[in-house]
Every structure is written in structure tokens, then in C-alpha cells.
Design a protein around this nucleic acid. Structure first.
Lengths: 217, 217
DNA sequence: ATTTCAAGTAACTTGACAGTTACTTCGCTT
DNA sequence: AAGCGAAGTAACTGTCAAGTTACTTGAAAT
């Protein structure tokens, strides 16, 4: 309200919203880079240009901050997943591009899996819903005959994530296998092409694709 | 000091070899579980039933120990990779089974990628050789016509690793996608079946499988 | 048997880091 | 304009963990 004509805003005045935002932003960087155990609270606070005490004020403790960072990132990405192109052949390179552009996301997923394994999934409800939608989409494609329906839709999603995220999650292995650094533009080009070839093999009509399907063991 | 006539071999005498071995063993467990930053040197020493000082004696520092643990694990696994079945359809479930049986290995790879990214690959020379062999094997299969030769062999290896290791590296995503816990025997069964179906789509003769590209550069 | 050196130990140093205390400043409400 | 609670700060605390010191013990070589 009232304007305070020439009050010098030495501390840029108060702005809890923005402070919170800055903390989350620098926490994302720190956690993505060093993980939970490796991250330094003081470092996050310094980078956010706030006092450490405020960080504890907003997020309780280090783990609370980590969980909040993850929660937000997941929510952000869930929307992206839904926005994939219909064409199954273009979907893989599209997902790869998403992952390529946001390594922090991939790294957070990695830290999450190492820290908590398959139990205690963060923001489980929300993510479960996102996956259910993705499943439905796949099944609709299968019904329309644009995707082979021999495959279990959940497994298909899993394998698609595998193909698009793996080289980014394990860049050292990608380099050993292909001889190219993942950050090399050539790698990106080559891999996207590969993914298209790959997806093409799943167009229905390839009718030997149930070879393994009947019996196992 | 003084003689202590009937010196009982209270410390089970000296055995540097075994001590080293015990350190490496408990270090593997600790690092796989908590990563480099999260692991506690005192904890490793206690579990190995040696004095911390000896650990520093043998391995210099914490990082030296970590690198040695990784080096040994990699060497161990390299041999396994080479022993995969010829049949491309059985190779994926075989690799999956290997990974399934040794989660510590997968976790170490994850920690490695997070800690050092694509540079500073540990034991690079040795691993490069192992990958070169794998590449040769793929190409031989392609020449024999048992695998589609449109695909770049390095990328093929990468994608095969992706398909076999991803659910184990990201168990939380596997569960969200399929509804089954990775450690659930049902998951293993279902996923191995899926991998066979998947591989079958790559048998040559599926001749729409070059949709994405003419030649790989 | 004496030397010698690797194997082994307990106690310590040093620094770092998560979390806290005790306090001040701002701005809004009444 | 007084008071109140949220926003903010500097300095502190207790703990923990990596790495070291200064020592002892064992056994093999001389």
C-alpha cells in the first residue's frame, strides 16, 4: 500500500515468494549436481542470496527441501510427457530431445532411485495419474492399429523411457559404446536417427514380432 | 611391551591380503548403498573389522578406495558380458538376468555417472576393449544376416543395455509404468517375455525397419 | 638375537556442516 | 502509533567424519 516515497530498498524489500523461488532454483542446481548427501545447505543458501535460516524456515530441513525440489520438477515434466506427438515414430526422438534439454531432470530421477529405491515414491499420486494417461494413449494407438498390440502397454512405456533416457543417465556408457560424447551434437543427431529406425520396426505388419510371446522358460 | 608369555593370537595373526579383501568387500556394500558422499569410512572399516588407519594404508584415501572398488567390479562384469548367448533373441533376457542378480553393479554404474559424468571414466582402457569386442560380435551377427544391418552397432549395444538395465536403475519408474515392483518375481517374468517379443522385431526380414534412415553417416 | 619393516592400533586433530539461538527490521492491521 | 507476526540476519553449537600422529606388535632376514 502506500508507497513510502523514497524508502531505500536496501534489502530489495521483502518478498517471501521470490525468496522461496530463488531457494528452490539454486537447490535444484545443487542437488542435481551433487545429490542429497553431497549437496551443501550453506552453498544453496549462498547461491540463493538468502540467509540459511530462511531456508529452514521455508522447508523444515534438508530432506524437506530435496523432496520439494523433486516434487516440482516431476510436476513440470508430467505435462511434457503428455504433449508428445501422436506418431509413434516421432515420439522417441521427441522424448529424447526433452531429456537432452533437461539433464537436471534425469539426474534428479537418478538420485531419487538411489536414495529411495522403489518404495517411498515422491509425489506418487500425481505421477501415477500421469502414467495412467500415458498408458491409455498407448492403448488407443494399439486399437487404431498404429502400434502392435502384442505388447503390454506399461512395458512399452518403460522401454520407451529406457531408450530415450538411458544414454543421458549413463553418459559414460554411451561414450564407451558409440565413441561419441553424449554432449557432442553428432551424438544427438545419430541417436535420433537411430530411434526412428528403431521405432519403425514396431509398426504393425511386422508379423514375426510375437516370436517370444507364447511361452517363457 | 613386555613379553606376555603365552601370546594368544588374539588378532588372528597378520594377513594383509585378506584384510585388503575384506575392506574391498565391505566398501562395495557401503558405496553401492550410499554412494561416494554418503558412504562413511569408519563404517567401512568397522564392517571389515580392521582399523581405519589400514584402509588409508592400502588405498590412500576415500576416493582411491572407491575407484578400486569400481575397477574390480567392472573387470568382473566385463567377462560376463562376453559370455552372452549368440541368439539375439535370448541375449536381452540373459543380460537382464545378469543385471537383476547384481543390483550393486547397476548402482555403482549410477553413482559413477552422477559423480563423474562422461569424463574421467574409471578403468577406461580396459572397458574400451570390452566394448570393442562386443561391437565386433554384433557386426559378425549382422554379416551372417542374423541381425538387421541397418543399425549402427554401437547404438545397438547402447540400446540393448538401456532395455536390460533401465528398470533396475530406475525401479520407481518401472513400478509406476507397470504397476509391479521390480523385485516382484512377476515383474521379472513379464519383462523377460517382453524382451523376447521385442528382440523378435529385429530379426531381419522385417523389411520396413529402415524407415528412419538410409545410411548411418 | 638383533635389526628392520610391514601390519596393526587408539587417540587425536581439523575442518565442515546441519541445524539453532537470540536478535533486528519491516510493513500491515487495528 | 502501537503492536504483532512474518521476514530477515550473524554468530554459534554440537556432532560427525576424513585423515593423521605416534605408538606397538609380529615375523622374516641377517
Amino acid at each position: 500500500m502506500k508507497a513510502e516515497a523514497n524508502s531505500k530498498p536496501k534489502h530489495a524489500c521483502r518478498n517471501p515468494r521470490q525468496s522461496r523461488e530463488r531457494i528452490l532454483e539454486s537447490a535444484l542446481k545443487e542437488f542435481a549436481a551433487k545429490g542429497f548427501a553431497g549437496a551443501r545447505v550453506d552453498c544453496i543458501a549462498r547461491q540463493a542470496r538468502i540467509n540459511k535460516r530462511m531456508l529452514y524456515h521455508y522447508f523444515g530441513d534438508k530432506e524437506g527441501l530435496f523432496r520439494e525440489v523433486l516434487r516440482r520438477k516431476m510436476a513440470e515434466r508430467a505435462a511434457w510427457l503428455a504433449s508428445a506427438p501422436e506418431d509413434p515414430i516421432e515420439r522417441l526422438p521427441y522424448w529424447f530431445d526433452l531429456a537432452f534439454r533437461d539433464r537436471d531432470w534425469i539426474r534428479l530421477l537418478e538420485w531419487e532411485s538411489l536414495q529411495w529405491g522403489e518404495d517411498r515414491i515422491i509425489d506418487e499420486e500425481h505421477r501415477t495419474r500421469a502414467f495412467a494417461n500415458a498408458n491409455d494413449r498407448i492403448r488407443r494407438l494399439q486399437e487404431k492399429g498404429r502400434l502392435d498390440s502384442d505388447f503390454n502397454s506399461g512395458q512399452l512405456i518403460l522401454s520407451m523411457m529406457a531408450l530415450t533416457a538411458y544414454p543421458l543417465a549413463f553418459p559414460q556408457l554411451a561414450r564407451l559404446a558409440t565413441g561419441l560424447a553424449v554432449s557432442d551434437p553428432k551424438f544427438k543427431h545419430q541417436y535420433e536417427k537411430f530411434l526412428r529406425q528403431f521405432a519403425a520396426a514396431f509398426k504393425p505388419g511386422n508379423k514375426n514380432s510375437n516370436a517370444g510371446g507364447k511361452t517363457v522358460k
